[in-house]
Design a binder for these strands. Structure first.
Lengths: 156, 156
DNA sequence: GTCATACTACTCGGATAACATATGTCCGAGTAGGGGTGG
DNA sequence: CCACCCCTACTCGGACATATGTTATCCGAGTAGTATGAC
């Protein structure tokens, strides 16, 4: 799917824990997870364009959550990072070639394969939309305190 | 995900409808859907390696279903064509860098992000595993007769 | 007429390129803080 | 001492290379049918 999705999710949780501290620059986040700084920036910019993160320029700038963690679902993050994945378009293939000749009104209804695939994809999205960043925070309660402590100790 | 998945699915349904006719060569299937013949062969070879299709060489050879359609799920086809997609491995990133310092036993349990993503993926797989090729056939009952008629009329 | 044999045409099988997308890197525009200078 | 202004350092923002996976293509190995010739 793309590794940047995982990074974006982790960064969102971390930003939620550091919400009191103000904007967090990419430099800190990259060192935090030991990730390539420039590419991580690119991904977080995509999140900012989607309205999930807010970016503040300047010397004390950085990225911060644009909404409270309860209102950011995993679906939002995934959609923003990998784009709205195109659904199966079976109608294109099934009525080409000789196979579709004389089909008449059979192709009026949507393709069964398309329907089945879409149903599965919908289940996936539903699960993703049911979880928020706040839920992830609640999953590791000790992380909040540890994150703030480690963050204040960071030198760079 | 890959367009070949859609092609493989359509070919499986067609092969199920033509099960009485014996093996169907790639040449016919490619003309059937107007698809690139060589690449379609590659994908069907993958399905054969997975034990979903049976390939018979020789001048009257071709591909045919290795199992009855009721025992082939969409999950089988998808897994065979795109490989067993690697699950989220968040543990790699979250305990790198300075962010994970002093985490103690917090990282003993699996990462919450990993869990949430896996749950969504599982819902997707469950939907795919619940549908079989036979279900897709039942979705378009008229297709069986049309397919057999068009197939016997094919010249090439 | 029948059988064995060599041939041919067609199939699958895997190794090899072309392309797309995801990943990684670079330099420029803009802002806020800090220091210097004049009042 | 205070206010104003310039300067620097740091940030984000988008444009530019590289790597990996998907799509497309090629040639070789093998098999079954078929024609041919001998018996």
């Amino acid at each position: 799917m793309g590794e940047g999705v995982e990074w974006g999710l982790h960064c969102c949780v971390t930003l939620a824990w550091l919400r009191e501290e103000g904007p967090v620059p990419i430099r800190r986040l990259a060192a935090w997870f030991d990730l390539p700084q420039e590419y991580l920036k690119k991904r977080l910019q995509a999140l900012a364009r989607a309205g999930i993160l807010a970016s503040t320029p300047g010397v004390r700038g950085g990225f911060s959550l644009a909404r409270p963690p309860e209102r950011i679902t995993l679906m939002d993050v995934v959609t923003a990072l990998q784009g709205p994945l195109e659904p199966f378009r079976c109608d294109e293939i099934r009525q080409r070639g000789v196979g579709g000749e004389g089909a008449g009104s059979e192709f009026a209804r949507p393709c069964g394969i398309s329907t089945a695939m879409r149903r599965a994809e919908l289940a996936w999205r539903r699960e993703l939309a049911a979880q928020t960043i706040a839920d992830l925070m609640a999953h590791a309660p000790a992380g909040a305190e540890r994150t703030r402590r480690n963050y204040s100790r960071m030198t760079g």
